[in-house]
Every structure is written in C-alpha cells, then in structure tokens.
Computed example of a mutant assay.
Amino acid sequence: MRVLFIGDVVGNKGVSMIKNYLPKIKQSVRPQVTVVNGENATAMGRGISLSIYKELMSDGVDVVTLGNHAWSNNEILDFIDDAKRLIRPYNFPRRTTPGKGYTMINVNGQQLAVLNFQGRVFMDNLDDPFALADELVDKLSQQTKCIFMDFHAEATSEKLAMAKYLDGRISAVVGTHTHVQTNDARILPGKTAFLTDAGMTGPADGMLGMRPENVIGRFLNQRPARFEVLEDGRGIISGCFVDIDDKSGHATHIEPVMYTDDRMS
C-alpha cells in the first residue's frame, strides 16, 4: 500500500492548499491512504475546528493527526470523541484526555494502523512516548503489520531515536512540528521508513507560516510578540509518501513531496 502524509497545515492558506492541490498530488502519487497533520489549521494557526476537520475529510483526507496545539481551540473538546478519523498524541494522560491516539484504516482488506505521538524534549513533559509506543505497537501488531506513526516532536535526535527504537516493528515514523522539511528520507536497516520532518502546508513566504515581521521583531527586541499567520503570497504543500509491503509491513520506499503555487499551476 502507499500512504501519503502531508505535514502541518497552517491557517486558511494551508486549508486552501489541501483543497486546491491535494487532488493533483493524489493523481500523481496515487496513494491508498492520505494522512494530514491538522494541529495548526485554524485561522490563528493553532488548533482545529469541527468545520475544518470536515472540510479536510471532504477534500480527500482519510486521517487527521494533531500535536502540541491539539487543545488550542477549545471547540475540539465538543467533537473529538465523535470524530473517528481525528487522532491526538497517544501519550497525553490517558485517564483524563478525550479522543484517541490511533485509528485503524481498511485498505483493500488490509488494516493500516495510524499512530500519533508527541515528543518531550523542549516540549511539554507528557507521558513517556517510548514506553507507550512499545505497549501500543505490541498490541496493534496482533492485528496488523502495517503501522504508520506521526511523531510530533521538536528535537531531531528524539525523532530519530524513536524511529531506531521501533525499527523493524512498524512501517514508518514521520516527524512533524518544526514546519521545515528535512532532506533525510530513508529506509532504516529493519525496513522502517523515516523522515525527520515532513514540513508544513500553508504560507510559503512566511516564517514557519507566520508573518515575518512579527518573528523578526521578537529576535530583535526579545519582547513577547503575537505571531500571526501570513495569509497572502504563495502557498506551499509538503509531505512524503511511503510504500509498505502489505504482508510484511516493511517499508520499501519513502519519497518527500513539496510544491508551491507556482510549481503546481
């Protein structure tokens, strides 16, 4: 099977990039499953709303993953338990956190497990993602060999550590959060595909999707600044696709994708 993964959707521009260009990418890549990280998808660039979730689904997305901004829009508390294809990081405290951290997708009779975890280095100190990944992968391996993880983390070392820790046990570990696509897509020795960061989908000419002047001002004066999503200019859509052997669950290929408005028109 082929899984297309699209990195962090940022603001209105990111949502419009999915609507306008995901069909073209799917025509070229021809995935069986499309997974999108939507934790920055609201107009303010933090969180997700029910209307945006439904819009992503109607535009051809099969699963939406989240991250550290999962709860930045309080509306999510009203619908996450009913949104079957919306998952938040599994390692939030399980007894008190709504929603779920993984979902199963039927792909021509074969089950694909899609997992969402969050790192702890330079981020909130959630439950141990390594211990919980161990537990969850052991459980899901009884149902399928095809397991894909969105690991939402800051530190490149933590992302690679997770991939190497699970190498040979899951199909792919793809990183999100830093909004910059890395140039290290590879298949690890145990046949797990890895990419440190898939990049972002949204304003191409901003700084991680934000208005540059606000971010630069923060560097210049070291005072708190309100970051605002850049809404004009070119858009970008970034991610990767992974080929997975249905029987073994091993990855056979991983390839980044990145397009801007002027490269897709």
Rank of each mutant, 00 (worst) to 15 (best):
M1A: 04
I6Y: 11
D8A: 03
G11M: 02
G11V: 02
G14P: 05
K19A: 11
V29C: 11
Q32E: 10
T34Q: 11
A41P: 07
G45C: 02
R46G: 00
R46V: 04
G47E: 05
L50A: 05
K54H: 11
D62F: 00
V63M: 08
V64K: 06
W71I: 02
E75S: 00
L77S: 03
L77G: 04
D78W: 08
A83T: 01
A83E: 07
K84S: 10
P89V: 05
F92P: 02
F92V: 03
P93G: 08
R94G: 07
R95M: 11
T96W: 08
P98Y: 10
G99L: 06
G101Q: 07
G109E: 08
Q110L: 02
L115K: 05
F117E: 07
D124C: 08
F130M: 15
A131P: 07
A133C: 15
C146R: 10
T156V: 09
A161D: 09
G168W: 06
V173C: 10
V173S: 10
H179D: 05
T182P: 04
P189G: 12
K191C: 07
F194Y: 15
T196D: 09
D197P: 00
P212N: 07
N214L: 09
N214Q: 12
V215H: 06
N221H: 13
R223D: 13
A225V: 12
R234H: 10
G235N: 04
D246N: 11
H250M: 10
P256D: 09
M258R: 15
Y259N: 15
T260A: 11
D262L: 14
R263Q: 15
R263M: 15
